[in-house]
């Protein structure tokens, strides 16, 4: 069986031949497209390490069947930085030491991007904490994560305002 789907991954359209209907977006990225920045922590939607933006929304890629997302647009951690320049969220994660082992970090960052784009947390730390609670960090970097998301959110809204001006 060969099943062909088209995905736009980090801005680049790709046609992917799937030999197996069982492949999830996570395993497609990691095992077949060599985009290993997205991590597998639980494979069951319970940790958030595999978070990507799928058509602009943060989701657990481990529970998304690739076939079902034919035509979708995907943004992974590899597509976030602008060339050599870190995205404001990435920079804020470094500045606030918002990670230790780094394994949950790509998922945290993609989740933070989703949260900021959703626009519901604003500058309320409690809403950021709640909004980031789908991403477990066993090292316990939550304080830095919350600070980083708040700072990045501020910077991104400032940048957006400046762009408009």
């Amino acid at each position: 069986m060969s099943l062909s789907i088209t995905l736009t991954i980090n801005g680049t359209p790709r046609t992917v031949e799937l030999d197996d209907p069982r492949v999830t977006l996570l395993d497609l990225l990691r095992e077949r497209l060599d985009l290993t920045g997205t991590k597998k922590g639980c494979d069951r939607g319970q940790c958030g390490a595999c978070t990507i933006l799928l058509d602009g929304r943060r989701v657990n890629s481990c529970l998304a069947l690739a076939l079902s997302h034919d035509g979708a647009e995907i943004l992974t951690i590899e597509g976030l930085a602008d060339g050599e320049a870190c995205h404001p969220i990435q920079a804020a994660f470094i500045a606030h030491d918002a990670f230790q082992c780094g394994f949950c970090t790509p998922g945290q960052i993609m989740s933070a991007l989703g949260l900021i784009q959703e626009g519901s947390a604003g500058d309320d730390p409690e809403r950021v904490r709640e909004g980031m609670s789908g991403n477990l960090c066993r090292c316990g970097a939550y304080r830095g994560i919350t600070e980083a998301v708040l700072e990045a959110q501020q910077r991104m809204s400032r940048d957006a305002r400046e762009e408009v001006a």
Partner: peptide, 17 residues
């Protein structure tokens, strides 16, 4: 800040798997 920070926030840090 962590010297491995950029690798970790960009997904380039290569873990075993």
């Amino acid at each position: 800040t962590r010297r491995d920070g950029v690798l970790k926030v960009t997904g380039q840090a290569r873990y075993a798997a």
